[in-house]
Design a protein around this nucleic acid. Structure first.
Length: 581
DNA sequence: GCCGTTTTCGGCCCGACTGTTTTCAGTCG
């Protein structure tokens, strides 16, 4: 059982206990443990065997026992009993905005409601409004929420959410009286998907800004409208995709801005740690101020707030409570890699396989973006649906590259391939042809259904091939659409480290694969990471910064990312690898 | 259920908004 599967079950236990009316601190312990497990570095099985899992903060005796049972047997009677005791419809009801475990339980206990259908029916005949603590407005809100199920409240790809958030933000920034304005929350932290948009504005007069927010053209519905905080359901269309998201606006004074920025950026766990640290040092921290015995501590920026707590400033991408606060207290924070430091790209397609423009056009587009080298990585022969290249077409492309390299100035085209990893872990070209490339990106595009062991072994075998330079999109996931193939990532990373291979961070917005949680582990194992746009058109080259964000979330510096090196150094290193060191 | 320089009990971050109620509980972040 994988970390994510274990985490999902711990989360489910927390939710089921909430629906049974259990103490919030106990249910929170399960939700916290779920988050902790999903972000664990290293392999669960190994940690259990080495008896180190119990040392992790938030994993006590009971959690350790349950996780061990899940990992070793794949089952847990405790959760099965809970599932039997709580109707599944009740869990589903929690997805309705404004409806939490207390209300769900009350309706179940008093009206026997255990499905969304029964809930809708009870609202329509006015039964719900009669309950103690409920009323007509609550009932209407629930009905509205039932209708909205499936459109609002779903996570959205971060790049789409950012487009919508930026549109609203720019509108607010243009208003008179606005001093500072920022997108906060998961968008500022660079998460790969977003559940909502958080906007913070500082101004002496909140009212006109609130008004502008709730009447903006993006507004679909106003769900809250107070003096300092308002909430809307916002929508826009991005490249033919309709995006619908909740958006919150907070307006504070400019003195309060750094505290509010810190608070609204999160993560929740990072904030809890900061507040705990504040308490330990005799302060109290909230979204408006840091207050000590002698009154508020003046801070103009986030840096000031961290400094007042004896910490170095933590970049938003690192604020996930995975050790960054301890680091900020004791040592230097790594200087995270920046988009401008990427000097070339390796994994891209042209019309020769499934790209939309020619090699020459792609290379010129790369040069326009300031890249020194453009690596072509068209598909290999087995991937016929993507017009994969046969060996003859590969050699023809090499000739084209040689000719273009004589003609084009300021950008060097590298001879690469995105070579399929076949079902048995062998590669899609013979060894002689593979040895002729400057580098080889090895990727899985078929047989997604293999068992975890088979898939892991297949990929590790491919990594052992001397011509392979890097592993492309390591899990094959498509965010919000398709789970990655089953894989023991720890073993894959161990293999990459053993054979001296690189791992790709695929920057396509629906891939972002390697996931940031594994990026940290890869770095710890000394594996070089490569940020690739997997571009199929010139526009796709602009995905690179999304991959840089993943790298930053994995604490990577310039030195950890191979394509921050210049073309001469890259060629030298690729040559060295081809000679077998 | 977790945790501990207040260590085996008694806390557990803190505040906005809504709707219900009339001082507060529930939800959300």
């Amino acid at each position: 059982m994988t970390k994510d599967e274990v985490a999902a079950i711990l989360d489910e236990i927390g939710t089921l206990l909430e629906l049974q009316g259990e103490n919030a601190f106990r249910t929170n312990a399960y939700h916290n443990a779920a988050r902790t497990v999903s972000q664990l570095e290293g392999d669960l099985k190994e940690m259990i065997a080495a008896k180190t899992l119990g040392d992790v903060r938030g994993i006590g005796e009971a959690m350790l026992d349950k996780i061990t049972t899940l990992v070793t047997t794949g089952r847990l009677k405790y959760v099965e009993d809970l599932r039997a005791a709580v109707p599944p419809g009740l869990v589903e009801m929690l997805r309705i905005p404004g409806l939490g475990p207390k209300k769900a339980k009350a309706m179940h206990d008093q009206l026997g409601i255990d499905t969304i259908d029964k809930l809708r029916a009870a609202c329509e005949v006015g039964e719900v409004a009669k309950l103690k603590g409920f009323g007509a407005k609550t009932q209407d809100k629930i009905l509205e929420g039932v209708r909205f199920l499936g459109t609002v409240g779903n996570r959205v790809r971060a790049d789409l959410a950012r487009t919508l958030g930026t549109a609203v933000l720019e509108r607010l920034k243009a208003l008179p009286g606005v001093t500072r304005a920022e997108l906060c929350g998961s968008l500022r932290r660079g998460r790969e998907t977003a559940k909502d948009i958080d906007i913070l504005v500082s101004s002496a007069d909140a009212k006109p800004i609130m008004e502008a927010f709730v009447t903006a053209p993006e507004v679909m519905q106003v769900t809250g409208h107070g003096p300092t905080k308002s909430s809307i359901v916002a929508t826009t269309t991005v490249g033919g995709t309709k995006v619908v998201l909740n958006a919150d606006l907070r307006v504070v004074t400019d003195e309060q801005f750094p505290f509010a920025l810190l608070y609204l950026t999160g993560s929740k766990d990072h904030n809890v740690r900061l507040r705990q640290r504040a308490i330990d040092r005799g302060y109290s921290l909230n979204e408006y101020a840091l207050t000590g015995d002698d009154g508020p501590v003046p801070c103009k920026t986030e840096e000031d707030v961290y400094a007042a707590l004896g910490l170095k400033w933590v970049p938003p991408e690192m604020r996930e409570d995975t050790g960054e606060i301890d680091l900020a207290a004791t040592g230097p924070i790594p200087v995270l890699v920046e988009p401008g430091e990427i000097r070339g790209v390796f994994h891209n397609h042209t019309t020769e396989s499934d790209g939309s423009v020619s090699l020459e056009t792609m290379a010129k587009a790369a040069k326009t973006l300031g890249y020194e080298y453009f690596g072509v990585g068209d598909h290999s022969q087995s991937l016929t649906v993507a017009n994969g290249l046969t060996p003859d077409r590969v050699r023809a492309q090499w000739a084209e590259i040689d000719a273009l390299n004589k003609k084009l100035k300021g950008v060097r085209i590298l001879k690469g391939t995105e070579c399929d990893i076949l079902a048995d872990g062998s590669l899609d070209f013979d060894d002689d042809l593979l040895a002729g490339f400057d580098y080889v990106v090895a990727s899985v595009h078929s047989h997604f259904g293999l068992s975890e062991d088979e898939q892991t072994e297949r990929i590790c075998k491919a990594l052992s091939h001397p011509s392979v330079t890097m592993l492309g999109h390591p899990t094959g996931r498509l965010l919000l659409r398709r789970e990655g193939y089953k894989l023991n990532m720890e073993k894959v990373l161990q293999a990459a480290a053993k054979y001296g291979k690189m791992i790709e961070i695929n920057a396509q917005p629906d891939r972002l694969d390697l996931d940031w949680t594994h990026v940290k582990r890869a770095k710890a194992l000394g594996i070089p990471l490569v940020i690739n746009p997997d571009a199929h058109s010139p526009e796709d080259l602009e995905y690179v910064p999304l991959g840089v964000t993943v790298a930053r979330r994995g604490w990577l510096t310039k030195a950890d990312v191979f394509n921050t090196r210049g073309v001469a150094e890259v060629m030298k290193e690729l040559e060295r690898r081809k000679r077998g060191k």
